[in-house]
Amino acid sequence: MSDQLLSPDHPSVVFACRGVQVYVKDGDTEKQIVRGVDLTVRRGEKHALMGPNGSGKSTLAAALMGHPSYRVEGDIWLNGERVDALEPHMRARRGMFLSFQYPVAVPGVTVANFLRASLAARRGTEIPVRAFRQELNAAFATMSIDPSFITRYLNDGFSGGEKKKLEILQMLLLKPAFSLLDETDSGLDIDALKIVSDGINLASGPDNGLLLVTHYQRILNHVQPDVVHVFMNGHLVRTGGMELVTALEERGYDWLAEEAAIPEGSRA
């Protein structure tokens, strides 16, 4: 992979990580989930991260965003700047975004108030109410979310599909440089999958990049990845293109585990 040879602070690179290891507390000891991951995402690129259930894909995504439950070693770069020592909100303000697999509800906080605060944080300036309303209405229309959701409490009582649509709506509004999309396709029916995929494509451009975490091929037919990685046992065991997706769909993950000489008990 010639991409890996690019320096993480090269101007064409929007996101990179080197030697990322992730540990979680396990009683009095620590358990290692990610055992050294290198990634280089160039501007305009869409990457897919595939792997079996329980392989730690979501952990990797949350750790890259700075989740406080994880201890992370290694370097993380965004737009040529090291961000691994920064708190999540500082990463977000610099243009990192995580679409959650299970977005948490925040009762009592309306979607409108939350989005206004997020936008102000990302843009570094308050947005006039009127301009905000217009922007919001347009985004809700794009994501086919009923405008009544604007005054509802954030993710409170939302269906799985509604939550995922709202995640991508936030991606559209916040215009991140680099997005981590964690199983954004899970729990979506065909119509919602189309809307969410269209939203991701609309939010993608020549200047930004994304990493789409999934274990299904389904969404990759709508959001065509430029690079596909397979993540198993804490490592990226294979990197390729769409042909890798087809191979996984036909053969499953076991053949890759055998190639990578991963013991049967550690393939998740």
Binding site: M65, G66, E87, P88, H89, A92, V104, V106, A121, R122
Partner: peptide
Amino acid sequence: QLFYLGSRGLD
């Protein structure tokens, strides 16, 4: 909740 809001830029 704090992580979610942090990931959206809120300190």
